[in-house]
């Protein structure tokens, strides 16, 4: 495959994207969908997971068979998961630098935060761009509650849209409301594990997320040609 960055990656090093959001919203599931989607576009990537006091998420990604386990690092955040992605991201910066050194030519590092509430944000010293993942199972009022994660993220992802009818949520309405609250900032819906389907029919929203990542952060040849 022709490398998608013929003239652009060397000086800047790999891009770093943060993925935050409450416990159980589907951050790790989203990573499991992003890995093959990005790899399929020729992107060389690695993953850093943050857990409270274990390496549960890292182990899950390592065992997924989707990525070389050596490309997955775990950071144990301790009691306050937001602290290591915002106030003092030293541990995550070190993990990112280790991966950068270990895998020359890396294009992208995904940093998953330990689950937290609606207030968690990423330091821009750590990541270039970050998304916040919520899901319909938390209730249709989550976007209205705002909070820094909802309001300040570069992308708000609303996951598990396929479960909306079972939890009394109007999927179209929660997307519409979130877009109104965030004004110009993007909101995308997805189903990381489409119930009863394999997700291969292109209606799960994953491609739209990858397209946005490419356009806003990776700047592959395809994304630059899209600009006209």
């Amino acid at each position: 495959m022709t490398h998608p960055f013929p003239d652009f990656t060397a000086p800047a090093g790999p891009a770093r994207i943060g993925i935050g959001g409450p416990v159980g919203s589907g951050k790790t599931a989203l990573i499991e969908r992003l890995i093959p989607a990005l790899t399929g576009r020729g992107i060389s990537l690695a993953v850093i997971t943050n857990d409270l006091v274990t390496d549960e998420d890292a182990e899950r990604v390592r065992r997924s068979g989707l990525i070389d386990p050596a490309r997955v690092r775990a950071v144990e955040a301790g009691a306050c998961p937001h602290t290591v992605i915002r106030e003092d991201p030293t541990l995550n910066l070190a993990a990112a630098e280790d991966l950068d050194a270990a895998f020359p030519g890396l294009d992208l590092i995904l940093l998953e935060s330990g689950g937290d509430n609606l207030a968690s944000t990423f330091s821009l010293d750590l990541v270039d761009w970050w998304m916040f993942v919520i899901d319909v199972g938390q209730g249709d009022d989550i976007p209205r509650k705002r909070g820094p994660g909802i309001m300040q993220s570069d992308l708000l992802v609303i996951n598990k849209l396929d479960l909306a009818p079972y939890v009394h949520v109007d999927a179209a309405a929660i997307l519409r409301e979130a877009r109104a609250i965030r004004a110009a900032r993007p909101v995308l819906g997805c189903c990381c594990r489409p119930y009863g389907r394999d997700g291969a029919d292109g209606t799960d929203g994953i491609d739209a997320i990858v397209d946005l990542i490419d356009r806003e952060v990776l700047f592959t040849r395809a994304a630059r040609q899209d600009a006209g």
């Binding site: 652009f8 000086p11 800047a12 891009a15 821009l124 010293d125 270039d128 356009r215 700047f219």
Partner: peptide, 22 residues
């Protein structure tokens, strides 16, 4: 200003992709 990677448009509509070293 703290960002290193941005996709922007200039006042004349030129498309700009910025990726700076850390």
């Amino acid at each position: 200003l703290a960002r290193r990677r941005l996709r922007l448009r200039t006042d004349r509509g030129s498309d700009l992709a910025i990726a700076l070293p850390r």
